[in-house]
């Protein structure tokens, strides 16, 4: 577990019952298996970070509803794994497509220019929050990772 400090502590609640996988849409059409992934996390298997399977979660939350354990949110664990993976330099291919949308958000206040009117004050404020919360720093880090992955 020490290798996965960034992964939610909730993971230890997993009973390995497999209900999540049984109802998971991604499992129906691919090798994605949330139960196996959680087991690998519990085993401290760091190879899960470079496994492209972690990007197959559809974040639909079906597993949240089906899980018998209160407070266990498998999609949050997957997101934490993805965060860990990106910080280790893996997974740029999976996030590259959304970078222009984040750029637009800071420019126009919306993911596309002109969807609805956004005041200059609102744009100024989200940019300030972007600086203060590290949102912009993350964006620059992801952009760099995507550029490096192209090389």
């Amino acid at each position: 577990m020490t290798k996965f400090k960034l992964v939610s502590a909730d993971v230890i609640k997993c009973l390995s019952c497999g209900r999540c996988t049984g109802y998971c849409p991604a499992s129906r059409v691919s090798d994605y298996n949330i139960r196996h992934i959680l087991n690998r996390v519990l085993d401290g298997d760091t190879s899960v970070l470079t496994d492209s399977l972690i990007w197959l979660c559809f974040i639909c939350g079906t597993c949240i509803v089906k899980c018998p354990q209160e407070g266990l949110w498998p999609p949050k664990i997957i997101q934490n794994l993805r965060e860990y993976a990106l910080n280790k330099g893996h997974g740029a291919w999976a996030v590259a497509h959304l970078i222009p949308a984040v750029d637009n958000f800071f420019k126009y206040g919306a993911v596309l220019k002109g969807i609805f009117p956004v005041s200059p004050k609102a744009i100024e404020e989200i940019n300030k929050l972007g600086e203060l919360t590290g949102m912009k720093a993350i964006l620059e880090k992801r952009k760099k990772l995507v550029e490096e992955s192209k090389e």
Partner: peptide, 28 residues
Amino acid sequence: SNDQTCCSGHFLLFNLTTSMGATAIEQR
């Protein structure tokens, strides 16, 4: 209100922002 912005939900779910960044945008 023209002072609202997009929700930023996409960015969080595909790890282009942190929980803190997304929460701040929602709170605004």
